[in-house]
């Protein structure tokens, strides 16, 4: 099975977020961009399938500023991906999920692809728009929020679950297919030190993303705001557990108005 796994460099969860002086968007200065948890899970899923199906290969692709994509792609190589492709695009194209999907398509069409895997949503923007947009652009079926993805060799179909508001769905789908994964239900492996060292010298291919029509639909960041700093919890003083409970319930109903 030829598997393409799409990776997005996102700010480290421990990063302190702040807006640019003009207030329009996140200030990337000094921020570390890493392989997000959701994407680590996608790489792990791809590697599990590769290990289960002889003759498989995993191709990692990533779109964004080159310094960031290269780090993420090297991390993927260190984990065991077979090839890496960086997609270069204009900065504006990084900022619209549909344009991101178009960039990913450009790379995917140059690679053998039976299965395209993505994390559920990128750890920074939490959009979840890309899997569907990519499926439509490639003319392939797509599913987001997938858990427990397996390959059924007998029927030559993917089998997976989806946890939706309706309940736990079970599906089967033939290849080719685009799959957006739900949370990290697998336990992503850690790259070994020697593999990390080796990944530093791995080649990274380059693909240029297409530019969309100038007046076409798009989106751009207009304002990035931090919530007022949380000043820390108002601690409830009490002598007995019952008193703590009574005070909290009163606060929640009268002050915070979330109860009953």
């Amino acid at each position: 099975m030829e598997i393409v796994v799409c990776l997005k460099p996102v700010p480290d969860a421990e990063t302190r977020a702040r807006p640019l002086p003009d207030g329009t968007r996140f200030d990337p200065e000094g921020v570390k961009f890493v392989l997000a948890g959701y994407d680590e899970s996608a790489v792990e899923q791809a590697l599990l399938l590769k290990e289960a199906i002889p003759g498989s290969a995993v191709h990692a692709i990533s779109l964004g500023a080159r310094s960031r994509t290269d780090e993420v792609l090297r991390a993927a190589i260190a984990l065991g991906c077979d090839s890496a492709t960086a997609i270069e695009a204009s900065p504006a194209a990084f900022e619209d999920p549909i344009a991101v999907a178009a960039g990913l398509r450009a790379a995917i069409e140059g690679l053998p692809h039976d299965l395209v895997l993505l994390g559920k949503q990128s750890g920074d923007e939490e959009e979840g728009l890309v899997p569907g947009a990519l499926g439509e652009l490639l003319g392939l079926p797509h599913f987001g929020f997938v858990v427990d993805l397996r390959w059924d060799a007998t029927s030559q179909r993917l089998r997976f679950g989806r946890s939706t508001e309706a309940g736990e769905e079970s599906w089967e789908a033939p290849l080719p297919c685009v799959i957006g994964l739900q949370q990290a239900w697998n336990d992503p492996r850690t790259a070994k030190l020697p593999a990390i060292l080796k990944s530093r010298r791995a080649p990274i291919a380059t693909v240029r993303a297409p530019t969309g029509p100038p007046e076409g639909p798009t989106s751009e960041p207009a304002r990035f705001e931090l919530p007022p700093p949380r000043t820390g919890a108002k601690m409830i003083e009490y002598r007995t557990p019952a008193e703590a409970a009574t005070k909290l319930v009163r606060i929640l109903s009268e002050e915070a108005k979330v109860f009953p």
Binding site: D96, P97, I98, A101, Q121, E126, E127, G128, L129, V130, P131, G132, A133, L134, G135, E136, L137, H142, F143, G144, F145, R162, S163, T164, E165, A166, G180, G216, P217, T218, S219
Partner: peptide, 23 residues
Amino acid sequence: GTTFGRDLAGRVAVAWNAAAVNG
């Protein structure tokens, strides 16, 4: 903006040639 809607939105945006946002 549930699983159903979020999963559908990106696809609809491309099919209908629209800009999109989730949540």
